[in-house]
Design a protein around this nucleic acid. Structure first.
Ligand SMILES: [Zn+2]
Ligand SMILES: [Zn+2]
Ligand SMILES: [Zn+2]
Ligand SMILES: [Zn+2]
Lengths: 174, 174
DNA sequence: CCTGGAAATGTTATATTATAACATTCCGCC
DNA sequence: GGCGGAATGTTATAATATAACATTTCCAGG
């Protein structure tokens, strides 16, 4: 093993909360790169604004509200207004690059863009971070239940609020 | 079997969407009666206002927004204002008599008050009705998943949007 | 009964979230 | 270069939710 190899990092895809000290730039870079590829493949335009909003949302693993995004944009884009943000996130959500967390009125980067999946979010009420999981057991169960009910599900969402492992053991939430 | 027995009605508890022609007064009466009992047992006060708001929410199986409730209240309670409604629904939600549907900013009567359960709601985007189901498979799956993630869930919610059986077969949504 | 104090409701004002409507700019395409 | 649709800018307003303080209601205890 070379001592200069890149440090290990658990992938950010679907494995729950990441360690506090993880190299978050890799999360951001991977997300932006993935988004570029997906949008190119779909012939939709990941414009500068949309890319920047995606980057802001990926700024951390804490969901970001529309007006928080707006505030961040204002410094660099004087004309930014609510529709600026809402239109960008509408695009990002439609492309499956971002999830809207209904119970928070906030947005978080999707950990599985381009893969069909049910959004399953664990939201820590201590540190505020949200982790997306993609457990096929849950998707299967949902499919069975809706089928049993004769319900044709178009989209569904699972949101759980509680304490992540770190915050349970009394770690500093920040 | 006596010919004068009450007509059969599928219980409203956890069985999905009810038939169009079901005797909805029985849903309402059962819900209000159950609420009285629960509140008495818990020594909390189901005041006139709270009872009335619960009755309004149970007015149909379509989720009701806070300002729709307010509009209905205004005719009978001149001083009604947003806090009137929000405080009443806060109580009803805290007592588990009503669920808030985050994706709609609306409220619907709980089909399983007093029973510990995960809110699982199927929302028809054609007729607007919401059906609560209580499938133990889903609760179990959620428990396993959160446990695997080391997450201590405090509450969680499942919301699915799609088409109920009636609306799939082209029935008049109303 | 009366009454102290907490809970509930009334009342006014405002914060937060989201969208409508129309103008302008951008950008690929011819 | 200029046509046309998509994206963004701009202004205004709608829809949802809460803060803060005043008043009323309701009991439990005297
Ligand atoms: Zn990260
Ligand atoms: Zn996702
Ligand atoms: Zn009914
Ligand atoms: Zn319920």
């Amino acid at each position: 093993m070379s001592p200069t190899r890149a440090p290990k990092q658990t992938t950010h895809r679907g494995t729950g909360f990441l360690a506090r000290g993880h190299d978050h730039r890799r999360c951001v870079d991977a997300a932006l790169s993935r988004a570029e590829d997906l949008c190119a493949a779909r012939s939709v335009r990941l414009t500068g604004l949309r890319r920047r909003v995606l980057e802001l949302i990926w700024g951390s693993h804490k969901p970001l509200g529309a007006y928080q995004i707006l505030e961040a944009l204002r410094g660099e884009r004087p004309g930014a207004a609510p529709p600026t943000v809402y239109r960008a996130v509408e695009f990002l959500v439609a492309q499956g690059l971002v999830h809207r967390i209904e119970s928070l009125n906030a947005f978080v980067g999707c950990a599985h863009p381009g893969e069909s999946h049910v959004s399953q979010l664990l939201i820590c009420r201590a540190c505020g971070e949200a982790a997306e999981i993609a457990d096929p057991r849950l998707a299967d169960t949902m499919d069975r239940i809706t089928a049993d009910a004769g319900f044709l599900a178009h989209r569904h969402a699972v949101e759980a609020v509680g304490l992540c492992r770190r915050c349970q053991i009394g770690a500093d939430p920040e």
